[in-house]
Structure formats: C-alpha cells, structure tokens
Amino acid sequence: MISFSVDFWYAGIGAALIALSLLAFLLSKRLLKKLLAFNIMGSGVFLMMVGMAQTQNDGAADAVPQALVLTGIVVAVSATALALVVIRRFALASVVAALAAENKAAENDAAENDAAEKNGAERTGSDTAVSDTTVTDTALTDPNLNKNGDPQ
C-alpha cells in the first residue's frame, strides 16, 4: 500500500523543513539567523523521527520515538541557550575590541600630529575617519564567513 498515510506526510514535511533550514543555515551571515535555522532544522528532524516510527507495529502508539524526541528537544533547548549566551558575550567583546581599536587609532593620530608639529612639517591633519561600520552589525555577522584572520 503506497497510499500516503498521515505518518509519511509528517516525515515528508519534516524532511522539507530540514532542507530549507539547512539552506538558510549555510547561506546566512547573521549569527541569530543561523541559530533560528538550527532550531527549525531540529524540529524538522524530530518531526521526521515521529513520522517514520509509526509504520512499525501497525498503528499502536510506540513509546520509544516519543522519548527520543523529548530528549532531543531538551538537548536542542540547552544548545540554543548556550549559543545565545556566547553570541551575546561575543558581541560585547567585539564592541570592546572595536572601541579599543578606535582609541589606539586615535592615539596614533595624536602621536603623528605631535611628530608632525615637532618636525615642523605642515601636514593637513587627515584624521582617520572612523569607518562608520555599525559596530553591532559587524559583531553579529556569521563568524564562519568574516575574514578577520587569526584569532590572536
């Protein structure tokens, strides 16, 4: 019987969900978007797990997949919590780092200007315009793709 019983529908939708969220996960650069995609993918897997299982012992409710899905959900929630904390801490750290970079740049300019006055060369004070990259924006982009070289 190849008629699409209800369970296969669940499994099919689960698979579709997984595919879509995987796509979103890989393409997006923003950290939160990736996290959301991960959660959707998780629920897709759980849906598939429940859907697939029904076909075993002809319709009677089978406890095992339920238990598995429950544990899966618990694990997914804890993983998301950890991810959120780390993203927040990461954003904070990159703001701090950006500011530090800014004042270091400022100090260099000050040193240059003094040096310029000291050796009397008239130079147009081209203070380095702080590139107005929105600090929060860079912080939240996807760590996989941004290219700021070695962690050190």
Binding site: A83, F90, A93, P143, N144, P151, Q152
Partner: peptide, 17 residues
C-alpha cells in the same frame, strides 16, 4: 572570554550542532 576565543567557540558550536 577574549574575542578570538569566543569567535572560535561559536564556529565550533555551530559545527558541532
């Protein structure tokens, strides 16, 4: 807690997940 460590941790987390 420094930026590079957090950055690496995030990449590790996403790969693990």
């Amino acid at each position: 807690g420094e930026k590079p460590a957090l950055h690496a941790a995030l990449r590790y987390l996403y790969a693990a997940l």
